[in-house]
Design a protein around this nucleic acid. Structure first.
Length: 425
RNA sequence: GUGGGCGUAGCUCAGGGGCAGAGCACCGGGUUGUGGCCCCGGUGGCCGCGGGUUCAAAUCCCGUCGCUCACCCCA
């Protein structure tokens, strides 16, 4: 048997309905906040990611699906979306005009990691990016947008974690200070952190080792060493969060694994998913567009993990109800044509209708209808053909009424008392 | 990449040298044309794969693959 590739999962009903729900809500909220959808390739030149995410990050060092195409060019399945959004922004000259460009996109990402709960090699993100604005209000708006999506999905027990990572003015000096500290106390660092201290010193802050943390106590947090501009920016963002009643926790150790972040960085975490607790994360990336060859435009974005969101939703919420279904049970080949006509007529009015073509017993068809969750079953056989009337059974109450089968109108009336057709009939 | 747990029916799992099992699901019947509940019957298995020990292996041993949880890191 050929099985799915490690870390890749089939998404099946009823799970797909949950995803549809998530994406529908997200699209609606994006629309209210002035974000437009873009769709991007899953495959990019490898260089795009090495240059944007950072050569020394875990993603680039060991997690990318990279391979040569038939011409020997190195391509990579995108491990995240921001780099692609920025590439598209530059390539399509979307920087024209003074307004902030707001885009969202959703789709699969790929990282070659050992799968575990809440972590897959192909996973899905909903991304939002606002390019061309550096106002702290924009940072606040992004966070409000993210939280509104989560709120409208009724996800509970979430926490917003916030930090500022400084900018090209203040971070280098701080990194020098850190590096000097690590040079003095290198032997006190754990093995992982000795490696981290050389590659990306900020990540030592993530370490759980007691000795590493003690060493870090000798140096102030980056958030206390920000330049005036970064400080003002952070203060204004937090002030706005307060003003909108958004609770948050400042965590000076929140670093994030991509090199391009500047100033605002944030995550939304949950206590309900085990080790993989980040439901969404994002931050500002003021230097990235320029580094990738575009204009010097600041930007900010976030990503929501759809698998993790769906997992929370399935834990916290009842299944998404389906639309009422009309099932038509057929008795005998002669009635089949009429039944098919009726099914089509009902469907074309925007209602959900289905039937079985296999000439089964009525009992078998009733069982089938029940399993499908049909709300009404119309029974059509020779008698009904002759009388031009058929019994319509309400599957919840068990009661039947005779309806005309000249057309779909009486059948629709029975269904229509419960809902309108999808086309708003 | 490292470590723990687990691989037996479609699903959840029992069985730990001697006939391959249960519950649920599925199909049929009880009801000539009426679902759910109930009763009766049935289909369904390379016991993950390969090797070894043994008269005999789902069971013991070795290897391997897969799944899963955790570390690392992140969505």
């Amino acid at each position: 048997m050929i099985k799915a590739v490690r870390g890749m999962k089939d998404l099946l009903p009823p799970e797909t309905a949950r995803w549809h729900h998530i994406e529908t809500i997200a699209r609606a909220v994006f629309r209210c906040y002035g974000f437009q959808e873009i769709r991007l390739p899953l495959l990019e030149r490898t260089e795009l990611f090495t240059r944007s995410i950072g050569v020394n990050t875990d993603i680039v060092e060991k997690e990318m699906y990279t391979f040569p195409d038939r011409h020997g060019e190195s391509l990579t399945l995108r491990p995240e979306a921001t780099a692609s959004v920025v590439r598209a922004f530059i390539e399509n000259r979307l920087d024209q005009g003074a307004e902030v460009k707001k885009y969202f996109t959703m789709g699969p990402m790929f990282r070659y990691e050992r799968p575990q709960k809440g972590r897959y090699r192909q996973f899905h993100q909903i991304n939002a990016e606002a390019l061309g604005g550096d106002a702290p209000e924009l940072d606040a708006e992004m966070i409000l947008l993210l939280l509104e999506i989560l709120e409208r999905l009724q996800i509970k027990n979430l926490e917003l974690v916030f930090n500022s990572l400084g900018c090209s003015q203040c971070r280098p000096a701080y990194l020098l200070e850190l590096t000097a500290l690590f040079a003095r106390g290198l032997r006190d660092l754990c093995d992982d952190c000795q490696r981290r201290s050389a590659v990306n010193p900020l990540r030592v802050f993530d370490c759980k080792s007691k000795t590493c943390q003690e060493l870090l106590h000798q140096v102030p947090a980056l958030s206390d060493q920000l330049c005036d501009d970064c400080q003002r920016h952070e203060q204004r963002v937090l002030e706005l969060l307060d003003r909108f009643g958004v609770p948050y926790r400042k965590n000076p150790r929140l670093v994030r694994g991509l090199d391009y972040y500047t100033r605002t960085a944030f995550e939304v975490i949950t206590t309900e998913l085990g080790a993989q607790d980040a439901v969404a994360g994002g931050g500002r990336y003021n230097g990235l567009i320029r580094e990738l060859g575009g204009p010097d435009h600041p930007a900010i974005g976030f990503a929501i993990g759809e698998e993790r969101l769906a997992a929370l939703l399935s834990q916290q919420q009842d299944p998404i109800p389906a639309r009422p279904l009309l099932f038509i049970a057929v008795l005998g080949r002669t009635a089949l044509d009429l039944a098919f006509d009726l099914v089509q007529a009902v469907r074309r009015q925007g209602y959900v209708a289905d039937m079985d073509f296999a000439d089964r017993s009525l009992k078998a068809q009733m069982t089938m209808a029940n399993r499908r969750g049909a709300s009404q079953v119309l029974i059509v056989g020779d008698k009904e053909l002759a009388a031009r009337q058929a019994p319509l059974k309400n599957m919840q109450s068990g009661q039947q009424q005779m309806v005309s089968i000249e057309g779909p109108s009486e059948i629709l009336a029975a269904l229509g008392s419960e809902t309108e057709g999808v086309y708003g009939v």
